[in-house]
Amino acid sequence: MNEKNMIEVHNLTKTFTAYKKGKGLAGTLKSLFKREAIHIEAVKDISFDIKPGEIIGYIGANGAGKSTTIKMMTGILNPTSGYVKVGDYIPYEKRQENAKHIGVVFGQKTQLWWDLPVGETFAILKEIYQVPDDFYASQMAYFDEIFELSEFMGQTVRTLSLGQRMRADLAASMLHNPKVLFLDEPTIGLDVMVKERIRKAIKDMNQRYGTTILLTTHDMSDIEELCHRIIIIDKGKLLYDGGIDTIRKEFGYERKIVFDLRYDDATLVEQTLETLIPSVDGCQPDNTTYQLSEGQLTVNFNRNQVGVSGIMNFVLSHFNVLDFSVQDMDIEAIVKRF
């Protein structure tokens, strides 16, 4: 190894043991004495390395094992086998030491103090991470510039909007200038403006301090704009580890149009749809797929080979369309293709 890795993940496996609960009262009583163990393999034999300063998109469907991996990298969970190394530490063996050098945002949960004003929260974090006074002052000025924190500095955390809370949470995770930043869905549920601001801040942080960043997301634009490299996992297994370009080349031209249709006879619609591929210019079974369910027609196609107008013309002239939207291919669909 020539260059030192910031993060090493080696044959990482995590198996959870849960116990089956019996049905009804009798079952519950029975399970008090005899329990049936179920082993859930959340992460299976995953290995990858991350170099300092990289921004990695860590992608997978819900329940793919992303959060479990992050929890092992942050020292909260012990792996069943294999190991993780972050910087110089094995996180779950030296949790507190490791914690000094990492920042974490769980998009679903805040790490701020619910009942305290935002400003107080930062003062507390300053003490916990032992941030020197002058660095604290410069960080706060910097955060104010990129997150506009002063708007809500005096408000208690529980009164913040989701966007404000996320900005505060991100700032909190960056306060002590960590070497590695773990962002678990930092843009979840946010509007486009706030998302944009958060992406800018992440990029800025990476360029300014060379912070290594690992982020999970369901948002394709997060990945396109931020990530140098992506790692895809599904059902606990590693599917893809490589540059964003391959993905972009293969799936970047994928588009999806969703139509809301009104019809009485679904079979009639199905029959008409069968003529879609033969009758639209450029459409082939391998570059166009469609799906009809409960009044919603979803058409996936490759923008480079098929014209949007061809598909639009076909659908609009054959069906009663109530509404439609054109979308980028989503991550779930990409994962399914592997």
Partner: peptide, 14 residues
Amino acid sequence: KSGRIATNLIKPVN
């Protein structure tokens, strides 16, 4: 219960 323990454990504190 709420899973908030994670936000405590990511901090360098006992």
